[in-house]
Computed example of a mutant assay.
Amino acid sequence: MHATYAEKGLRILGFPCNQFGKQEPGTEAEIKEFAKGYNAEFDLFSKIDVNGDNAHPLWKWMKDQPKGKGTLGK
């Protein structure tokens, strides 16, 4: 998707997190190396928590927004 639509302005932001089925248990360096194996060229940020007391402020904010859809928002 990134390769197809990046030139048209699509930005994909990757936030590694190990809170969903233990999908990303490695270090940030290991996760970035893994993503390279799939030619992932989107922006990949530091590993964060999206749930609980240590949730990243961005995710806390997104979950607090009214009219959110799916698992985000009130």
Rank of each mutant, 00 (worst) to 15 (best):
28 E>C: 01
38 Y>F: 15
13 L>S: 07
42 F>T: 02
67 K>H: 09
10 L>E: 10
39 N>A: 15
14 G>S: 11
18 N>F: 06
40 A>G: 08
43 D>M: 13
23 Q>M: 14
53 D>L: 14
20 F>I: 07
1 M>P: 08
68 G>P: 02
12 I>Y: 09
60 K>N: 08
69 K>R: 13
41 E>P: 04
30 E>T: 02
35 A>P: 01
27 T>G: 04
72 L>M: 06
57 P>R: 05
48 I>E: 11
11 R>F: 09
17 C>F: 03
40 A>N: 12
59 W>T: 03
54 N>L: 10
64 D>C: 10
69 K>C: 06
47 K>S: 05
32 K>A: 00
56 H>F: 03
66 P>I: 02
5 Y>W: 14
70 G>C: 08
11 R>I: 13
50 V>R: 09
59 W>A: 06
21 G>Q: 10
70 G>S: 11
72 L>R: 00
19 Q>L: 07
10 L>C: 12
66 P>C: 01
66 P>Q: 06
38 Y>S: 12
61 W>G: 00
39 N>K: 14
51 N>F: 14
53 D>T: 12
69 K>F: 14
46 S>N: 06
52 G>C: 12
26 G>R: 06
38 Y>C: 11
22 K>P: 00
23 Q>D: 12
54 N>W: 10
30 E>P: 08
63 K>G: 09
29 A>I: 01
56 H>W: 00
27 T>W: 02
39 N>G: 07
34 F>C: 09
8 K>S: 15
7 E>N: 13
1 M>G: 11
67 K>D: 14
48 I>Q: 07
44 L>F: 04
67 K>F: 03
15 F>L: 02
60 K>A: 05
18 N>W: 04
36 K>R: 14
35 A>K: 04
43 D>V: 10
23 Q>G: 10
8 K>N: 15
19 Q>I: 05
21 G>A: 07
21 G>C: 05
2 H>N: 15
25 P>K: 04
18 N>E: 06
55 A>D: 03
23 Q>L: 13
54 N>E: 15
41 E>Y: 02
17 C>V: 07
27 T>K: 03
38 Y>W: 15
37 G>D: 06
59 W>I: 05
40 A>I: 15
49 D>G: 03
52 G>H: 14
37 G>W: 04
13 L>I: 10
35 A>Q: 00
42 F>H: 15
65 Q>R: 15
67 K>C: 10
33 E>R: 05
30 E>C: 03
22 K>M: 07
1 M>S: 12
51 N>S: 12
57 P>C: 10
6 A>D: 08
42 F>P: 13
22 K>H: 11
36 K>Y: 06
30 E>W: 01
52 G>V: 15
70 G>M: 06
31 I>H: 01
58 L>P: 01
26 G>W: 04
47 K>L: 04
61 W>I: 01
14 G>K: 00
3 A>D: 12
37 G>A: 09
55 A>H: 08
50 V>M: 05
62 M>W: 01
11 R>P: 07
15 F>W: 11
64 D>T: 10
31 I>S: 04
17 C>A: 14
